[in-house]
Write a protein that binds this DNA or RNA. Structure first.
Length: 565
RNA sequence: UGACCCAUGGUGUAAUUGGCAACACGUCUGAUUUUGGUUCAGAAGAGUCCAGGUUCGAGCCCUGGUGGGUCAACCA
């Protein structure tokens, strides 16, 4: 007989970073310690690409009993704001991760960084340069040609020290001087050509106020913060690969024993039909192409949340796409599959009609209201049942009726019989039109013996329609979303702006939709499956007297798929 | 005329570290179904960028190509 089949756990696949970690653990490195960090710059909202990084950083630490710090990379006060800090914290928590009391800011280290810079000056490894940005840039050379040394490169330690103090004390104006590392202007790696360490910026900082008027550059801050926090694995995206020698150079100047953080790079997430850079997302927000960072069409964490995505679905997605160094492009269909999969298990079923067509059941008693039994979630028996009111006048979906139904159309047509879910079999007897020939109403008769949806004589019907009572219902606004861009890779066109590929129909607002009374008291973020239509959640614009729903995702629809061809 | 990185079905990842290429999404059949959902059964689709080499044996190792990406912000 059977050996015990191992429980199917939510396996975390072993990616190349996990392999590195395991090799190091086996070699006894860092005393078996694993400590990662998630280091966002608070200059925008987090997007699904950050979510991948969050899952990687927190997930890796969890897997190896380690810790993860949240550290805001706030070295550029001209772009960073507290609003972003707050949203980032909310998003990381919502995704299901916790950094305990290890919430840090690069700005926490401004004093230590300043000291470290002073040390480098004293060791003759840094100097103050008086040249302007353009000159420094032109002396930098090109990737294929070495750079030129600055005329100030050989200043004495004393002069450098004096100048640096005066930079800090505000004696010079923005851009007048910089502190540079003295490394190698001929290095094949551009980042090693005397990189800038500090620049003058008389801009108040969101945390340090006007204490500083010089601010460290990213390269001069990141690795050192990692070092001071005891980070073992500094995981970042591929574009920082060429920065690694410089990262290591600073650590070399800092380290006092064997410990050193290791920078490992992985490929950032690209998704089809969207853009994934904070700069471009900010542009969409500023130019009002979307309603804000949390517009449900945005690939931001807050947008996905508002759209109805669950943290679980995003974590599963992150797990499924894996972690590699291949710069690829993930099909959004995979993201959509991840929500459907999660919501299918969890979402309360409900009937809602988006595009109403009135149906009068002519042989049904006027004024009668019957409470029909409906299953809350067929995937979860514990979710129980509810009552749905049935009346003589109801609404059905316009697309569920065709006057001249094609082959394989299982729904309603003249003379046809269908099932109204959880209610009765009805047969269409009349089609009522207005002067324009537009169908305004259907007349049907019902079979009282088919109460609940089955006929005692064993009669079968091909179609089952959802419906909502025309008198016992909740009226709602429903927002349907489509991809923001029509092109798979709006970024991938040279000489064309990504905004040229925007989908003009990415948002459709349906004003008069009818939902069964069950949803009446629902709150923002509550998710439902509107049967046969898709997953919908309550939008934050929703009011008690005017519910607003977002369509999170459509249900798979083989019929629609065949029609499309 | 540089440095660094990458290359496996349509897409994304695997392959016990050298042993007859697996999984997920997507696509297509069929079954079940009071959601044209879910579930279930099945199919098609790559011979691993190319050329050499090492080896009994290479997607994994070596060499050389090719293609793609990143780097020349006082951004991160």
């Amino acid at each position: 007989m059977s050996e015990k089949i191992p429980e199917k756990e939510p396996v975390v696949k072993k990616n190349f970073i996990h392999q590195i970690v395991e090799e190091e653990l086996n070699a006894g490195k860092n005393d078996g310690r694993v400590h990662t960090r998630f280091p966002p710059e608070p200059n925008g909202y987090l997007h699904i690409g950050h979510a991948k990084s969050i899952c990687l950083n927190f997930g890796t630490a969890q897997k190896y009993n380690g810790l993860t710090n949240l550290r805001f990379d706030d070295t550029n006060p001209s772009k960073e704001e507290t609003e972003y800090v707050d949203s980032i914290k909310e998003d990381v928590h919502w995704l299901g991760f916790d950094w305990g009391d290890r919430e840090f800011f690069a700005s926490d280290y401004f004093d230590k960084l300043y000291e470290f810079a002073t040390k480098l000056i004293k060791e003759g490894k840094a100097y103050v340069d008086d040249q302007d940005a353009e000159t420094i840039s032109s002396q930098k050379g090109t990737p294929t040609r070495p750079g030129l040394e600055s005329p100030h490169r050989q200043r004495s330690v004393e002069e450098n020290l004096d100048l640096f103090v005066r930079m800090r004390d505000g004696e010079f104006s923005d851009g007048e001087k910089v502190l540079r590392a003295k490394i190698d202007m001929a290095s094949p790696n551009m980042h090693m050509r005397d990189p800038i360490l500090y620049r003058i910026m008389k801009t108040p900082h969101h945390r340090t106020g006007d204490k500083w008027c010089i601010y460290p550059m990213y390269d001069f801050a990141h690795g050192q913060c990692d070092y001071w926090e005891g980070i073992t694995h500094s995981i970042c995206t591929l574009e920082f690969e060429v920065h690694r020698p410089l990262y290591n150079w600073f650590i070399d100047q800092l380290k006092t024993d064997e410990y050193r953080p290791r920078q490992i790079e992985f490929a950032r997430l690209n998704l089809t039909y969207t853009v994934m850079s904070k700069r471009k997302l900010l542009e969409l927000v500023k130019d009002k192409h979307v309603s804000g960072w949390d517009d449900p069409r945005m690939p931001t964490v807050s947008g996905l949340r508002r759209r109805g995505y669950t943290p679980e679905s995003i974590r599963n997605f992150a797990e499924r796409i894996g972690v590699t160094k291949v710069d690829g492009m993930i099909d959004v269909a995979l993201l959509e599959h991840s929500v459907r999969e999660d919501l299918n298990k969890k979402a309360q079923r409900v009937m809602g009609v988006l595009n109403p067509l009135k149906v009068v059941i002519t042989n049904y008693p006027e004024g009668q209201v019957e409470e029909m039994d409906a299953i809350n979630n067929p995937e979860n028996p514990e979710a129980g049942k509810r009552k749905v009111p049935f009346t003589r006048e109801i609404y059905i979906e316009r697309e569920d009726f065709m006057e001249e139904p094609p082959r394989k159309f299982f729904r309603l047509g003249p003379g046809r019989e269908v099932r109204l879910r959880y209610a009765y079999f009805v047969t269409c007897t009349d089609v009522v039109k207005d002067e324009q020939g537009e169908i305004v109403e259907l007349h049907c008769t019902y079979d009282p013996a088919s109460r609940g949806g089955n006929s005692p004589d064993g009669r079968k019907v091909k179609g089952t329609l959802h419906w909502v009572s025309a008198t016992e219902n909740v009226e709602a606004e429903v927002r349907l979303y489509d991809r923001l861009f029509l092109d798979e890779d709006p970024n991938g066109h040279k000489d064309r702006d990504f905004k040229e590929f925007m989908n003009p129909n990415s948002l459709t607002v349906l004003d008069k939709c009818y939902i069964e009374p069950f949803v009446k008291d629902s709150k923002a973020l509550d998710s439902f499956q509107f049967e046969r239509l898709g997953y919908f959640n309550v939008d934050s614009d929703s009011k008690a007297d005017k519910l607003v729903f977002n369509r999170t995702a459509q249900l798979r629809d083989n019929w629609a798929k065949k029609q499309g061809k």
